[in-house]
Design a protein around this nucleic acid. Sequence first.
DNA 1: GATGAATGAGCATTCATTCAT
DNA 2: TATGAATGAATGCTCATTCAT
Lengths: 199, 199, 199, 199
Amino acid sequence: MDVQREVKFQRILDAAIEAFAESGFHQCQVNKIARLAGVADGTIYLYFKSKEDILIKVFQDRMGKFIAGMSRELSRCKTTEERLETIVRTHFSYMEENRTIAIVTQLELRQSDRRVRLPINSTVSDYFNLIEGVIKQGIDCGEVPEIDTRIARQMIFGSLDEATTDWVMARSPRTLTSGIKPMLALFEGALRLSEKPKL
Amino acid sequence: MDVQREVKFQRILDAAIEAFAESGFHQCQVNKIARLAGVADGTIYLYFKSKEDILIKVFQDRMGKFIAGMSRELSRCKTTEERLETIVRTHFSYMEENRTIAIVTQLELRQSDRRVRLPINSTVSDYFNLIEGVIKQGIDCGEVPEIDTRIARQMIFGSLDEATTDWVMARSPRTLTSGIKPMLALFEGALRLSEKPKL
Amino acid sequence: MDVQREVKFQRILDAAIEAFAESGFHQCQVNKIARLAGVADGTIYLYFKSKEDILIKVFQDRMGKFIAGMSRELSRCKTTEERLETIVRTHFSYMEENRTIAIVTQLELRQSDRRVRLPINSTVSDYFNLIEGVIKQGIDCGEVPEIDTRIARQMIFGSLDEATTDWVMARSPRTLTSGIKPMLALFEGALRLSEKPKL
Amino acid sequence: MDVQREVKFQRILDAAIEAFAESGFHQCQVNKIARLAGVADGTIYLYFKSKEDILIKVFQDRMGKFIAGMSRELSRCKTTEERLETIVRTHFSYMEENRTIAIVTQLELRQSDRRVRLPINSTVSDYFNLIEGVIKQGIDCGEVPEIDTRIARQMIFGSLDEATTDWVMARSPRTLTSGIKPMLALFEGALRLSEKPKL
DNA sequence: GATGAATGAGCATTCATTCAT
DNA sequence: TATGAATGAATGCTCATTCAT
């Protein structure tokens, strides 16, 4: 039954996130993931090609859902301001609510190994496109001046990513979500959203 | 003689940067670094505690010099605008001129291993302090409104970092330095530098 | 129904011969045999105790039939010369006509594993007895001088076996059957068949 | 020092022969060979590419020496009869005196794996050439009739090989060397050595 | 009987590090 | 100091076999 398969797949994914977050990708043994998932070592390989493949699928599955969710929320927004707020809020909230995923995303996934990096990039690109889409839309509406969307996206994603990494690494007392408003203010300034629209 | 020692230390560092950039930190064998540096395997361990220690020292040495250089340049600046421009220009120029170091910095150093991350953080902190210092100075002078310096720093560093990673990974036809001006414009907007100073 | 069982048993045996000949015993996975035989992995174990057991049964079944056939032919022969000719011809012809079986027999079966070697030996012994019987008969009839039948058998079997292995490994352009007459001539000389019987 | 290296190489070879003879190639763990040789596991790999490579080198080294020795002895012989006697005697004596090598040669080396078979074949070919050379010489001298040297070689080698395997497997009470004379008699008959030379 | 998903034992090999020279 | 041969810990993955259905 396909539902059974999906359930077990998710169980292994959950176990892997927990294991990676705790021990780090390289330190973590496949055997540990299996134990956490309550399956035999060999069973892992009925669902994943390799240990690297688990990491890749963790990202594709969780980030895929995250991006889909954000995309849905964005479609309900009217203005660029609302859209930016959605991006920052969704990003920070998701990470804060899913600390283990955040750890994997911000630390474990920054693997130099090409076999991991390449498959992950295509998922990351989806997020990039989402952000760049919001900027383009802003430019088209006249809410945002004609700027380089790629560089604007690098600023937005880079800022969110750096703030998240900071939070993950610092176990900062400050919450991540407390940064939503100030970060948003910076973005609005950068994109000149607060300035009077040109008549 | 201490000069002799420093020369060999730097030779190993150079070899390591080349080796890490080419093969990746995990793939690269200590033996390869030794060969490139023209020393025996064992000699490495007269200069470094471990393979991880090489990575750490690579960062501390090169980033240390980079930060010192930037610090010197910043001390010559008069305005926040000049200082921001110095940060962006120095960051992008340095990375563009030192691609192998950029590869190590942006990809190989993003190791999850705590033994690597922690010692590196203190060097990174120096950079963070530099950036936050510029922001604080701007606030003190009234050039920049009262904002959260930590979040502003996350935005500035995150943006520069992300742009650099993009450039390293994409082997983008666009040069990194071509992004200096547009990125600076975003920062000035974010920090409301272009707005009239409140009287 | 027992016929059904026998049919499936033979189907697995055929699949195994093909699989072993193609991939080699150790390389070949049970799962491949199952696929070739059109049954599930588990079904194999309703017919065979283990992978080794398949190899053993392949040999016992095919060699058993081969030996039975040769035995039948030998019973029709009148002279030692005819009997020797029957042995050489039957051996070479059978192998040439059943190349995959020859591959399994000459290469895959030469496994060092005791669990395989011992059960196979009893089947091989039947062949040895057949050959030694022919020699004894020759001695009894006075066609062959009083020689050590064991050593004579070693010579005859060893020669046929080596020629077959040569042919299997070399994919020699020369056919195996082209060696019947010259090999027979050697055997007749060795057993002094061509010499005048002692009065 | 190169002598040191050769000594350790031979020590590992000796350990491997003992280990293979005792447990069989597949059963035997590299770790066991290392223990017997008194070196660390990793040291094995400074001398051999892989476990298979050990097996190959065992054969090439020991058989190489065996063939060289036989070649030397053969060069001292005057007649084909002497040469045949040398082959049979040397083959049987060597195997009887080196039972563990015989076990490895007759049982463990009959690996179906191509990676093992191919490199071994070239050494075996040397032996084949030696035997075929003796036959050719016999034909040239008129001592042996014009026969197919390849098939004659198959008979000689096959017979010796089979007798050796029999002895190795049977732990026969009969010694291998007791077969020298009867086997030689068969060869002489096969090659018509005992018959009057054609005038 | 037949299935095939699940099991889990088993091991060659690498490579950072050491230390006798 | 420098060397580089030797060390030995450490583990992902395969695949023959089982057993619930």
